[in-house]
Amino acid sequence: MNITLRVWRQPDSDAPGKMHTYQVADVSEDMSFLEMLDVLNEQLTIDGEDPIAFDSDCREGICGMCGLVINGLAHGPGKNVTTCQLHMRSFADGDVIDVEPWRAEPFTVIKDLVVDRSSFDRIIQAGGYITAPTGTAPEANSIPVNKADADAAFDAATCIGCGACVAACPNGSASLFMAAKVAHLGLLPQGQPERHSRVLDMVDQHDAEGFGGCTQIGECTAACPKGIQIDLISRMDRDVLSAIAHRK
């Protein structure tokens, strides 16, 4: 099939960017979206043009490196998939497809479709961990964890840190990302001692990075490739209230 792409091109973070139109011919429906871009890039290179920069690494939906806004939707159409898992059979011959980078103030565009997501690392630095220095830890089975909690913690822990929630949120909020980590650690017995300080520190860092506040719109959940649910945001809000109430 033949596809028309409208792609955001921007040479670097300081330069202005704009949409460019490209034609891609003979696209196979077995191609992934990123492979289609690879093919376009091969062509651009041969023609001596600058290939389109975009991030990807694992190409199987787990590393969180990839992420494009396709036709206005973070990670494109399709439920619970990352951009690298999107295949061209989701499109039709003759389609015009818009491709843009994640947009949010803390996600500076580095080039074309590549953005800076280091703010996520700093949110984790602020408290997204359990302090357990390497050494002789207690025997693993000495801390039983109720299976329901363990499963719920796992569900939350599957967040791949891709940033689609931010890209989709009308407020530019990273609440879903943050809530997923708060829930993962807060659901486990090991995570209790730091539960209160963790959530307050992470929220402060989130705001300091310049992300917006959550007003419970739910676009994040719909875009999240891992199906992280927004009840985790509510859970995080409870943790904040409880942390404030217990402040010494």
Binding site: V69, D98, R103, A104, E105, N171, G172, G212
Partner: peptide, 18 residues
């Protein structure tokens, strides 16, 4: 804060109108 976080664009900040 929403405006600061999304360069004023909010939910309409993408070029794509789809």
């Amino acid at each position: 804060r929403m405006r600061l976080a999304t360069a004023g664009g909010g939910g309409q900040r993408y070029e794509s109108t789809k």
